[in-house]
Structure formats: structure tokens, C-alpha cells
Amino acid sequence: MITAERKSMEELINCVSPYRRLLLVGCNECVTVCSAGGRKEVALLSSALQLHFMKEGKPFEIKEITLERQCDPEYVEELVAHIDSADAVLSMACGCGVQEIARRFKEKPVMPAVNTKFMGASERQGVWAERCAGCGDCVLGLTGGVCPIARCSKQLMNGPCGGSTKGKCEVDPEIDCAWQLIWDRLKALGMTEKYEENMPAKDWRTGRGAGPRKIVREDLA
């Protein structure tokens, strides 16, 4: 999933202060799963903002709505019925959702309520960790299902480096050395010969190296 974290209340209060009527929009997908911008978080942020502005004695109205997916125009269209009654939109979706609303409703200020972080997985309740960097040329089949791009601090294709100590990364002792994980997994699978294969320098053009990317499926488009 795409993970996100709510911005500080100070930042959010500052960015919504110029407006009186706010449309607060959540998303039922990734940000719901990572507890950053689903229906519950929309209700909580709405409650917090209302409490703050009540305390300030400032008239402030919030309308809450949570879309099935903010990154799909079909669902964003549902905002048509609500957009006119709002001075601005505060989106709790990832950056994709915020941009989709901004693209559809060009006349409305649209602000993000969360900082979009990374593509990750749940490690346990309330903990998410980065797992994929979207490099566009997946090597997981060669690395025992552990990504050296997303999980090695140096994105080494042939690791580990000299900073790997007792399975931990020199950048932070909390970070597992991805190449230690890769070696352990390959050994468990009896596939250590994969480790001996030197991987060539990665072509980063499949990632962000060649600018913003697009997928076009001719059979669907």
C-alpha cells in the first residue's frame, strides 16, 4: 500500500485558517489501511479542527466525505455535489488523490492533510515499513524476495557493504541489512548460486531516471 502520515495540527490549522467552509475528503484505499486518511481519520481530524476553531471563536464549517478511491476520476466526480458549498478542499489521500481533485476542480484550492511516505507493508499493528521503491524493473526473483532497492540504504545491487554488522545497517541499528536478509533467504532456499551472480549496474530509466512515468495498456485504453 501507499503509506502516509497526518501532517502536524499546527501546519493543518495554518493552511485551513483562511477559509470558513472546508470539504474534508478521505479515501477508502491505502490511507485507510495505514490509518492516515480513511473515514475514521477524517472524522477525528474534523473533530480536532472544529474544537480548535470553536476555541478561537471563529465560524468554521467542515463537511466530511470519504471516497472509494481518490485517485480515480469516477469516484472524484462524486464531489461535484459538495464542491460548491466549500471554500477549499483538504484531502487526506496520498498525493495521487490530492492531485486528482486539483485536476478535476481547478477553481478550488486543494491542500494535502497527510505526507505521503512510501510503498510499504504492515509489520504489525500500527507499524509500516518500506518495501518497494517502484524502480520499474523488479529483481525480487533474484534476491530471495527481499528488495535491495527499497530496503538497502545504499540501494546496492551487489551487497552487503562494509557497514553491515550483525545483520544490521550502519545507517541505523534498527534497520535490517537487506543483503543479510537476502543471503539468509537464498541460503534457506538452497539458492546461494544466485548470490554469486554479479548484477550489472541498474538502468534507472525504468524508475524516476527518465522523468514521470506512464503505463498505457492498448487493450484497455
Binding site: M9, E10, I13, A48, L49, L51, H52, K55
Partner: peptide, 8 residues
């Protein structure tokens, strides 16, 4: 923490 942040 949230209440501290919003001044309540």
C-alpha cells in the same frame, strides 16, 4: 497530544 496541539 492532539489536544495539546490544538490548544485545548
Amino acid at each position: 497530544k492532539l489536544l495539546d496541539e490544538i490548544g485545548i
